[in-house]
Simulated assay, not measured.
Amino acid sequence: MLTVSNVIERFKFEVVTGEIGIHKAVTSIDVSRPGLEITGYFSYYSSERIQLFGTTETTFFINKLTDEEKRERAYLLCRDETPCIIFTDGYEPPKEIIEACKETSTPLLKTELTTTNLVFYLTDFLEISLAPETNIHGVLLDVYGIGVLITGESGIGKSEIALELVKNGHRLVADDNVEIKEIANGVLMGKPPKLIENLLEIRGLGIINVMTLFGAGVVLNEKRIMLNVHLEFWKEDKEYDRLGLDKRTIKIIDSEIPSKLIPVRPGRNVSNIIEVAAMDFRLQKMGVSAAREFNERLIAHIRSKNDGGTQSL
């Protein structure tokens, strides 16, 4: 849960008053500049948002309102669900707002940042912090710049494959458990839990620290997930895609990403296959598809055969 204290710690805000309320939850990714509310219009007051006072709001409050209006508007701004009120540009909060925040335990903060900059940084921070999240059992690596999430049943060899990919120069993000946040539609960011950061579990060997063994260049703290490779033990009675025309996807939270089903059996170099899958994914993003090209060649060949047969008749 994101709280006001987390926001204070991130941006080094100065707490003016309302310290009792710094453990309030922040639930909205939006921030508000309560200009209309200061004039007295509270019909659509988004009280669950962080409230920002910039130059316009502060000067209007101080210079255009009577003392009675200041007190009234200050208390109307401080509701139970209001996370906090922040004054930007180094402005000192008016005494009426200080009193209202103190009595209602609404954190009142100030910063030297400009309103424009704070809105940009704060919104970005809230979007990431409050993004929907989940955990998936798997391994996440950066393979040729592509975030590849390797999934499959326990014991199929995901960590061993990750170790071989790391030795080939690719970078490990997370092993066994991947924390995933959907920071935008179709944008999934994966990272490791702090407890297992930089670690790989190899059955028969135990826990190894890949950064200690291979250097800081083989690990990443976070990576966008762009491709899923799902491993399963080879089933003789199952027909697997041989042309690459099947368009599989996997849904994580509300986003879908391309997925490749790779059968595993002795003798198959799965690490090499995953490297090729990542390179092929990059080519497809650039509009190059070997499967589509082969299909077009095949159709053209069949048509030429048919045309030849018609002419001979």
Rank of each mutant, 00 (worst) to 15 (best):
247 K>S: 04
293 E>Q: 07
210 V>K: 08
221 N>R: 14
187 V>H: 14
89 D>R: 15
77 L>W: 00
81 E>P: 04
79 R>I: 08
135 N>G: 12
223 K>I: 01
245 L>V: 08
107 P>A: 01
273 I>T: 15
137 H>P: 05
183 I>L: 09
209 N>V: 13
84 C>G: 11
19 E>Y: 12
124 D>W: 07
21 G>H: 01
37 E>H: 13
292 R>F: 07
137 H>R: 11
269 N>E: 13
190 G>P: 02
291 A>W: 09
58 T>G: 13
275 E>Y: 06
233 F>Y: 05
204 G>H: 03
285 K>F: 07
80 D>L: 06
103 E>M: 12
253 I>T: 11
284 Q>W: 12
141 L>W: 00
57 E>Q: 02
62 I>L: 13
227 L>N: 03
183 I>C: 10
102 K>A: 15
211 M>T: 13
95 K>S: 05
164 E>C: 06
144 Y>A: 15
74 A>P: 02
43 S>N: 10
75 Y>Q: 11
70 K>F: 11
22 I>W: 01
25 A>H: 11
220 L>W: 12
300 A>H: 01
243 L>P: 06
279 M>K: 11
112 E>K: 15
309 G>L: 05
88 T>S: 03
121 Y>T: 12
296 E>K: 02
123 T>Y: 11
70 K>I: 05
211 M>P: 02
133 E>W: 10
226 M>T: 13
313 L>F: 15
151 T>C: 06
256 E>L: 12
55 T>F: 09
215 G>H: 03
16 V>N: 07
93 P>F: 08
198 N>K: 05
200 L>A: 01
133 E>I: 04
173 V>A: 05
264 V>Y: 03
50 I>L: 11
298 L>Q: 06
210 V>N: 07
226 M>Y: 05
64 K>R: 08
80 D>K: 15
286 M>H: 15
154 S>K: 07
127 E>I: 00
110 K>M: 12
5 S>Y: 12
95 K>V: 06
53 F>L: 14
179 E>W: 05
271 S>V: 00
232 E>D: 08
4 V>Q: 03
129 S>E: 03
208 I>R: 02
230 H>G: 02
38 I>A: 01
94 P>L: 12
230 H>R: 12
244 G>R: 09
291 A>N: 09
77 L>S: 03
23 H>L: 15
234 W>F: 15
231 L>A: 01
220 L>R: 15
100 A>L: 08
47 S>R: 15
162 A>H: 05
220 L>T: 06
279 M>G: 01
21 G>Q: 06
17 T>I: 10
191 K>C: 10
122 L>Y: 01
120 F>Y: 14
272 N>R: 08
99 E>A: 14
29 I>F: 07
155 G>R: 11
308 G>Q: 15
74 A>W: 04
118 L>S: 05
150 I>K: 02
41 Y>I: 04
73 R>E: 02
120 F>P: 06
259 S>F: 13
171 R>Q: 15
152 G>R: 10
231 L>V: 02
5 S>E: 14
12 K>N: 02
21 G>V: 08
89 D>G: 04
9 E>D: 06
93 P>Y: 09
